[in-house]
């Protein structure tokens, strides 16, 4: 394992300013670098025979998931356990027809039991902002509606940095359902803050309004998006989008936007292919590409644990894990 130090972005800070991680939008570039550098050290823990440090001993972390999630929830839980936190998983199925307790009441009830952190996944954009105003605990956004998924963007950046040793100046093409993607928004904030050249590509029906104001280059021509790209990031196409008439058929989507080997050949020879998962093989990405030599999709999953350990550790106040280990 190589420890990467980004020469252009020396960490100027040793802690995060906010008690919460609500989104990348609120973070400074130095804070992003701090998380990534901390994750470098956390990654080493996974290579030890005993993958546990006492950094969060005595801390209680609640994983509050209002949406089904395997990858993110598991990743957070492993990260918490490796840091010796006491963890608690609460999965609540919600739909607009189920009239249960309000989110605010659920949060206040949890809060009464004095957890230290709440990791929240929710289908409503801004749910984490609501909680952060109610709770003393640190709120970590594990995906809110179509707003942000900050730890995904951090683990993506971590993975890119491991391979490319930098973020600045890279051409990153993000292709897929841009409109409904929280991964897109977090990645745009992160990559533009860190100086990458970000291209976003999808059908105009799935393009957020005024996307240029995000500081990215939009296109609906996938060949232009991937030409000379250092990184291609695929976004999931949700099958139900067809019903909203966003595009005619999955077959046509694949023929216009699907990431095929032929399209990948327009990118830089050392291009990385990324996907936040879960993938729809044959819809947004050809299996040959997903399983091919440039794919780092499973590395992303592995790095997710280290990045989430870094976030948990920093929000807990950054006890000295090295010493404690």
């Amino acid at each position: 394992m190589t420890t990467v130090h980004d020469v252009e972005q020396k960490p100027a800070v040793t802690s995060l300013r906010s008690k919460d991680l609500l989104g990348i939008a609120e973070m400074l570039p130095e804070e992003i670098t701090l998380v990534l550098d901390t994750a470098d050290a956390m990654k080493e823990i996974a290579s030890r025979p005993i993958k546990k440090v006492p950094a969060l001993r005595g801390k209680t972390v609640v994983n509050l998931f209002f949406e089904p999630s395997t990858r993110t929830r598991t990743s957070f839980e492993i990260a918490e356990k490796r840091l010796s936190a006491d963890t608690l998983n609460i999965a609540i199925a919600t739909s607009s027809v189920v009239k249960g307790e309000t989110l605010a009441d659920t949060a206040m009830n949890l809060e009464a039991m004095r957890p230290d952190m709440i990791v929240l996944r929710h289908s409503s954009s801004g749910a984490c902002h609501l909680l952060s105003r109610i709770c003393r605990s640190a709120i970590i956004n594990a995906g809110d509606g179509t707003h942000e998924h900050p730890t995904q963007a951090l683990l993506d950046a971590f993975t890119i940095r491991e391979h490319k040793k930098r973020l600045k100046g890279l051409k990153v093409a993000i292709v897929g359902d841009l409109l409904h993607s929280r991964v897109l928004r977090s990645n745009i904030h992160l990559l533009t803050k860190m100086g990458a050249d970000v291209w976003v590509c999808g059908p105009p029906t799935l393009m957020p309004t005024d996307i240029r104001r995000f500081g990215v280059t939009p296109t609906s021509h996938v060949e232009d998006a991937v030409a000379g790209a250092d990184v291609i990031m695929m976004l999931r196409i949700q099958l139900e989008r067809m019903e909203g008439a966003y595009f005619p058929s999955l077959r046509e989507y694949f023929s216009v936007f699907g990431m095929t080997e032929e399209r990948v050949r327009r990118a830089n020879p050392d291009v990385m292919i990324m996907h936040p998962g879960p993938m729809n093989r044959g819809v947004e990405i050809a299996s040959e590409v997903a399983d091919g030599p440039y794919s780092v999709i499973l590395e992303q999953v592995a790095n997710g644990v280290a990045v989430r350990m870094a976030v948990l550790y920093l929000l807990a106040g950054g006890a000295d894990y090295e010493e404690a280990a």
């Binding site: 939008a25 954009s125 809110d144 509606g145 942000e148 995000f214």
Partner: peptide, 13 residues
């Protein structure tokens, strides 16, 4: 309103 702010906050416009 469908505009930049709804887009950035992930709100349906």
């Amino acid at each position: 309103h469908e505009g930049y702010y709804a887009a950035t906050l992930g709100l349906r416009g």
